[in-house]
Design a protein around this nucleic acid. Structure first.
Lengths: 341, 341
DNA sequence: CTGAAAGCGCTTACAG
DNA sequence: CTGAAAGCGCTTACAG
C-alpha cells in the first residue's frame, strides 16, 4: 500500500508537507501543493484513517444511531444523511438499535464510540438519565433528530409532533368523527423518545378543543410497525365500541390497521376512516390520508449541522434553536365522513 | 480517556499482557487474565480501534455496500447483518450507492476501503470489469449477496432468481393468463447486477414452456421502486394491448402497478392480476400475491460467512458453493383467473 | 512556507 | 507465561 512517505519522496517534500497539502491547509505554497496532489493522484494515495485518527484525532467517520433501518422514516433519514456525509468525505457507522436494550447500553456506555467517530447523529433514540450523562461525556459534536430531549450543545432537527397529530385529529373531527381511536406507543415508556407521547398529547388536545372527551378504550398502544398496527386494530375490534375513525401515529401502523379492517370485512373509508403520519412511499399506493413529514430533509439538515463543527460546514448552517420542519395534511381516500347512523 | 497503560498499571502487568488478555489470546495465565479483565472493567477501558488497526491490522469494522437503504430488501439485509456483526464486536460502515455512479467509483477505486475495514459485504452491487479488478485487488475477505457474478474467494448468498420468476409466471399461467406483462429492470444494463436479467429469463422460459410467445410490448422496464412501477404500468396502459396480468420483478414495483391500476379504474384482481417477488412487509396489507424470498436470512448468513475468515466464525459456516436460499409462492388476493371474455 | 522529530495508543516479534 | 522495545502511518508543535 502506498504510504505518505511514498508520496513525499515522489513530490520531493517532507511527509509533513504532504499531510498539509492533502488536507488543504493554507500554509503550503501553490506550487508545492500542486506537486503533492499530482504525486498522490499518480500513486492513488489516500491517508490511512486509523493513522490520521491516532495522530490527529480526526477519524473521518460519523455514527448514525437509529431504532430500526427497516422502518420508512429511519431508512429515509439514513439515506439522506449518508449522501451528505459521504459527499463531505465522511464515512457512516450505522448503529441499528433494533429495540435491543443491550445494544443501546453497549453503544452509549462504552468508551468506544468517541474513539471511533468524530460526531454522532442520534435519531429518535431514547435517552435515560444515565444515557444522557454518557452522551454528554462523549464530548463529541452531535445532532439529534426527531427527539424530544435536547443534548446540551447539540442542534436538533424535528417536526412539531403535537401539531402534526392535532392536524390529523382535526381532519377527522372536521369530517364529523367523534369516536376516534388512537394507536401510538406505550404511554408509560417515557425515556426521551417522546414522539409517541407528543403525538398522543396533540391528539387529545385536538379532541378536547372540539369538546370530545377522550375515551381510554379508544387509546391503544403498538410498536410503530405494520404488524403492531394490525394487532392493535384487532384488539380494538375485539374490545369495542367500534370507533368511526382510527388515527395511527405513523403510516406503517395505519397500513396494519387497514389490512386488519379489510380482513374483518370493514371497508375504508366507508365503514371506518384511517389516517396516519409520515407520508410513507406506500401511502399513495393504498390511498392513505396522512400528515406528511419531510424525512429526507431531516437527515440532510442533520448531517449538515454535524459538518459545521467538523469544519466542513457552511457557518450559516450553525443554528442554536431547534430546526422545526413543516408538516402538511395529505388527503387521500382513506378518510371520509362517518356513516350516517 | 483511559488507555492501555492505565489498565496495565492497575493490573500490575505490562501493556503487552493487557493486550493479550483482553483479546483472549491463550498465552496468558488465568490469574493474570482475571486481574486484567477486572482492571479494564473498573476503568471502563476499550481499546482504541485506530491504534489497534495501525498496530495490528484489524480495524474491527465491516463495509456493507448496498444500492438503496430505502428499498425493503436492502434495509432488511442491512438490519440482519448489523445485528450479527455488532454481536461479534464489529462495526458496520454503510455505503449507500443510491444509483450515483461517482459514489460507486469513489468507493471501489479508492485505496481507502481496505484501510478502513476488515471485510466487505457487497449487496446487489454492479461490478464492471474495472470494478472487478479493484475489488479483487482489495485483498479483503468479502461476501456477495444477491449478485450474479462471483468474486474469487468470496462466498455468495442468493436466491435462484430464474426459478423465483418462473414460479410467479407459472402461477399466472396456471390461473389461465396468457397476456402477461413483465415489469423489470433495464435489459441492456448488464453489469453484474443480474437480478433483473435473471428474473426476465425465468419469466420468458416459463412463458415458452407453456407455449406462450413473449410479447415485447408487454415487457417494460422500471427501476425497482414504487414510482417506477407506477410509471411502467401507466406506460403499459397507454401502449396497449392490455394484459390480463402483470408480473413485477419486485413487490415495490407491484405496489406501484396496483396504485396506477386503481387510479385508472381497473380492479385487482377482477380486471387484472398482479404478482411480485419479495414478500415485502406491505404485501400482506395490500393483499399482494408474491414469491417470498428470505431477506433477513441473506443478511444474517452473509454476515456469518464474513466472520469466518475474520476468525470469529464457526468453521462450519465456511462454504464454497453459493448458498442458494429457497423462495416460495405466497398466494393472496391480487391474482385470480382472467375474466371470461 | 517547509522540515525533523516526537508522539498518538496499540500489537507483535523477540527474549527470557 | 510475561515484558521491553520497535513500529504501524500519520499529524503536530517547534524551529527555521
Amino acid at each position: 500500500m502506498t504510504r505518505i512517505d511514498d508520496v513525499a519522496r515522489r513530490a520531493g517534500v517532507s511527509t509533513a508537507t504532504v499531510s498539509r497539502a492533502l488536507r488543504g491547509l493554507p500554509t503550503v505554497s501553490p506550487a508545492t501543493r500542486e506537486r503533492v496532489l499530482e504525486a498522490a493522484a499518480e500513486l492513488g494515495y489516500a491517508a490511512s484513517p486509523s493513522a490520521s485518527r491516532l495522530a490527529g484525532g480526526r477519524s473521518g467517520a460519523v455514527a448514525v444511531v437509529i431504532p430500526r433501518v427497516t422502518r420508512w422514516f429511519f431508512a429515509t433519514v439514513v439515506e439522506a444523511a449518508e449522501e451528505t456525509l459521504h459527499d463531505a468525505g465522511y464515512d457512516l457507522l450505522l448503529y441499528n438499535l433494533g429495540g435491543r436494550e443491550h445494544a443501546r447500553q453497549r453503544l452509549l456506555h462504552t468508551a468506544n464510540l468517541h474513539k471511533r467517530v468524530d460526531a454522532v447523529m442520534l435519531v429518535a433514540t431514547p435517552l435515560g438519565p444515565a444515557d444522557f450523562v454518557a452522551v454528554t461525556n462523549l464530548a463529541l459534536p452531535g445532532v439529534t433528530i426527531s427527539s424530544g430531549t435536547a443534548v446540551p450543545g447539540w442542534p436538533r432537527v424535528l417536526i412539531d409532533d403535537r401539531a402534526a397529530a392535532a392536524a390529523a385529529t382535526d381532519h377527522l373531527l372536521a369530517l364529523g368523527h367523534r369516536q376516534i381511536a388512537h394507536i401510538s406507543g406505550d404511554p408509560s415508556d417515557e425515556l426521551a423518545f417522546t414522539t409517541h407521547i407528543d403525538r398522543r398529547i396533540g391528539h387529545r388536545r385536538a379532541l378536547l378543543a372540539a369538546g370530545v372527551q377522550p375515551d381510554p378504550r379508544l387509546d391503544i398502544e403498538a410498536d410503530f410497525t405494520i404488524n403492531g398496527g394490525s394487532r392493535a386494530t384487532a384488539e380494538l375490534l375485539r374490545r369495542g365500541p367500534l370507533p368511526t375513525a382510527i388515527f395511527a401515529a405513523c403510516d406503517e401502523m395505519a397500513f396494519g390497521a387497514m389490512a386488519t379492517l379489510r380482513q374483518a370485512g370493514l371497508r375504508v373509508p366507508d365503514d371506518i376512516s384511517v389516517i396516519g403520519i409520515d407520508d410513507h412511499d406506500v401511502a399513495g399506493v393504498v390511498g392513505l390520508t396522512t400528515v406528511a413529514q419531510p424525512a429526507a430533509e431531516q437527515g440532510r439538515i442533520g448531517a449538515r449541522l454535524l459538518l459545521g463543527p467538523l469544519g466542513h460546514g457552511d457557518p450559516a448552517d450553525a443554528v442554536e434553536p431547534p430546526v422545526i420542519l413543516p408538516t402538511r395534511l395529505v388527503v387521500r381516500e382513506s378518510t371520509a365522513p362517518p356513516r350516517a347512523g
